[in-house]
Lab assay of single mutants.
Amino acid sequence: DAEELIELVERALKEGREIILLGVRITSEEAGKWFIEWIRRFL
């Protein structure tokens, strides 16, 4: 579910982890915020 995915992304970014989803590397909080917004819009 989308909320679970958002929580995972937020937690990983807070822990300083690198996330790779759909071939996109997300390493900064700014990118994470963009990704979370995208999830909310399309899922």
Rank of each mutant, 00 (worst) to 15 (best):
1 D>N: 13
1 D>V: 14
1 D>G: 13
1 D>P: 13
1 D>I: 15
1 D>R: 15
1 D>E: 09
1 D>F: 15
1 D>K: 14
2 A>P: 09
2 A>H: 10
2 A>F: 15
2 A>Y: 15
2 A>V: 14
2 A>W: 15
2 A>T: 09
2 A>I: 15
2 A>S: 06
2 A>M: 13
2 A>N: 06
2 A>R: 08
2 A>E: 07
3 E>H: 14
3 E>I: 12
3 E>Q: 13
3 E>Y: 14
3 E>F: 14
3 E>W: 15
3 E>K: 11
3 E>N: 12
3 E>M: 11
4 E>A: 13
4 E>V: 13
4 E>L: 14
4 E>Q: 13
4 E>R: 15
4 E>C: 15
4 E>D: 09
4 E>G: 13
4 E>S: 13
5 L>S: 01
5 L>A: 02
5 L>V: 04
5 L>H: 01
5 L>W: 10
5 L>P: 01
5 L>C: 11
5 L>M: 08
6 I>G: 03
6 I>C: 13
6 I>V: 07
6 I>M: 05
6 I>L: 09
6 I>R: 05
6 I>K: 04
6 I>H: 04
7 E>R: 15
7 E>D: 10
7 E>P: 03
7 E>K: 14
7 E>M: 12
7 E>I: 11
7 E>A: 14
7 E>F: 11
7 E>N: 13
7 E>Q: 11
7 E>C: 15
7 E>H: 12
8 L>V: 04
8 L>T: 04
8 L>G: 02
8 L>P: 00
8 L>Q: 07
8 L>M: 10
8 L>Y: 07
8 L>F: 11
8 L>E: 05
8 L>A: 07
8 L>H: 04
9 V>F: 06
9 V>I: 11
9 V>S: 00
9 V>Y: 01
9 V>T: 02
9 V>G: 01
9 V>A: 03
9 V>H: 01
9 V>L: 08
10 E>H: 11
10 E>L: 15
10 E>I: 15
10 E>P: 00
10 E>R: 14
10 E>D: 06
10 E>G: 04
10 E>T: 13
11 R>Q: 08
11 R>L: 07
11 R>T: 09
11 R>W: 10
11 R>K: 10
11 R>G: 03
11 R>P: 02
11 R>F: 03
11 R>V: 05
11 R>S: 05
12 A>S: 05
12 A>D: 01
12 A>E: 03
12 A>P: 01
12 A>Q: 03
12 A>H: 05
12 A>G: 04
12 A>V: 08
12 A>Y: 05
12 A>F: 06
13 L>Y: 04
13 L>G: 01
13 L>H: 02
13 L>R: 03
13 L>T: 04
13 L>Q: 02
13 L>C: 15
13 L>I: 12
13 L>W: 06
13 L>F: 06
13 L>K: 02
14 K>N: 07
14 K>W: 07
14 K>T: 06
14 K>R: 12
14 K>M: 07
14 K>S: 09
14 K>Q: 08
14 K>H: 07
15 E>D: 10
15 E>L: 08
15 E>C: 15
15 E>K: 07
15 E>V: 08
15 E>M: 10
15 E>G: 04
15 E>R: 06
16 G>Y: 10
16 G>V: 11
16 G>C: 15
16 G>W: 14
16 G>M: 14
16 G>F: 13
17 R>H: 08
17 R>V: 11
17 R>E: 04
17 R>K: 08
17 R>W: 11
17 R>L: 13
17 R>Q: 04
17 R>S: 04
17 R>P: 05
18 E>A: 11
18 E>F: 12
18 E>G: 08
18 E>M: 10
18 E>Y: 11
18 E>R: 11
18 E>H: 12
19 I>M: 04
19 I>Q: 01
19 I>K: 01
19 I>Y: 04
19 I>V: 06
19 I>A: 03
19 I>E: 00
19 I>G: 02
19 I>P: 00
20 I>T: 11
20 I>Y: 04
20 I>M: 04
20 I>W: 06
20 I>V: 10
20 I>N: 02
20 I>D: 01
20 I>H: 03
20 I>Q: 03
20 I>S: 03
21 L>S: 03
21 L>H: 01
21 L>Q: 01
21 L>P: 00
21 L>Y: 04
21 L>K: 02
22 L>N: 02
22 L>V: 05
22 L>H: 03
22 L>R: 05
22 L>I: 08
22 L>M: 07
22 L>W: 14
22 L>E: 00
22 L>G: 02
22 L>K: 02
23 G>H: 08
23 G>L: 14
23 G>P: 04
23 G>T: 09
23 G>N: 04
23 G>E: 06
23 G>S: 08
23 G>K: 08
23 G>A: 10
23 G>R: 08
23 G>M: 13
23 G>V: 13
23 G>W: 14
23 G>Q: 09
23 G>I: 12
24 V>P: 02
24 V>M: 06
24 V>Q: 03
24 V>L: 06
24 V>G: 04
24 V>D: 00
24 V>R: 02
24 V>E: 01
24 V>T: 04
25 R>M: 10
25 R>Y: 09
25 R>H: 10
25 R>W: 11
25 R>G: 05
25 R>D: 04
25 R>I: 10
25 R>T: 08
25 R>Q: 06
25 R>N: 06
25 R>L: 12
25 R>E: 04
26 I>P: 03
26 I>K: 04
26 I>D: 02
26 I>C: 15
26 I>L: 05
26 I>Y: 05
26 I>N: 04
26 I>R: 05
26 I>T: 07
27 T>N: 14
27 T>H: 11
27 T>C: 15
27 T>E: 06
27 T>L: 14
27 T>G: 10
27 T>A: 13
27 T>K: 08
27 T>F: 14
27 T>P: 03
28 S>R: 06
28 S>V: 08
28 S>L: 10
28 S>H: 05
28 S>D: 09
28 S>G: 12
28 S>C: 12
29 E>C: 15
29 E>H: 10
29 E>I: 13
29 E>L: 13
29 E>T: 12
29 E>M: 13
29 E>F: 12
29 E>N: 11
29 E>K: 12
30 E>P: 08
30 E>K: 10
30 E>F: 11
30 E>H: 08
30 E>T: 08
30 E>G: 09
30 E>S: 10
30 E>L: 13
30 E>Y: 11
30 E>D: 09
31 A>Y: 09
31 A>L: 14
31 A>G: 10
31 A>P: 03
31 A>H: 10
31 A>M: 14
31 A>K: 09
31 A>E: 15
32 G>K: 10
32 G>T: 09
32 G>S: 05
32 G>W: 14
32 G>L: 15
32 G>E: 04
32 G>H: 06
32 G>F: 15
32 G>I: 15
33 K>C: 13
33 K>G: 05
33 K>T: 08
33 K>L: 09
33 K>V: 08
33 K>R: 14
33 K>Y: 09
33 K>E: 06
33 K>A: 11
33 K>N: 07
33 K>P: 04
33 K>S: 05
33 K>M: 08
34 W>T: 07
34 W>A: 14
34 W>I: 08
34 W>N: 07
34 W>H: 08
35 F>V: 09
35 F>A: 02
35 F>L: 10
35 F>I: 12
35 F>R: 02
35 F>K: 03
35 F>N: 00
35 F>Y: 04
36 I>D: 02
36 I>P: 00
36 I>S: 02
36 I>W: 11
36 I>N: 01
36 I>V: 05
36 I>Q: 03
36 I>F: 06
36 I>K: 04
36 I>L: 08
36 I>E: 02
36 I>M: 05
36 I>G: 01
37 E>N: 09
37 E>R: 09
37 E>F: 10
37 E>H: 07
37 E>Y: 13
37 E>V: 11
37 E>L: 13
37 E>K: 09
37 E>A: 12
37 E>Q: 10
38 W>P: 00
38 W>L: 06
38 W>S: 00
38 W>C: 14
38 W>A: 02
38 W>I: 04
39 I>E: 00
39 I>W: 04
39 I>F: 07
39 I>Q: 00
39 I>K: 00
39 I>A: 01
39 I>H: 00
40 R>F: 12
40 R>E: 01
40 R>W: 12
40 R>Q: 05
40 R>N: 03
40 R>C: 14
40 R>H: 05
40 R>T: 07
40 R>S: 04
41 R>F: 13
41 R>W: 15
41 R>T: 09
41 R>Q: 09
41 R>Y: 12
41 R>I: 11
41 R>E: 05
41 R>C: 15
41 R>S: 10
42 F>A: 04
42 F>N: 04
42 F>K: 03
42 F>Y: 10
42 F>W: 14
42 F>I: 10
42 F>L: 11
42 F>G: 02
42 F>D: 00
42 F>M: 11
42 F>Q: 04
43 L>F: 14
43 L>G: 02
43 L>A: 05
43 L>T: 04
43 L>C: 15
43 L>S: 03
43 L>Y: 12
43 L>Q: 04
43 L>W: 13
43 L>V: 07
43 L>N: 02
43 L>K: 03
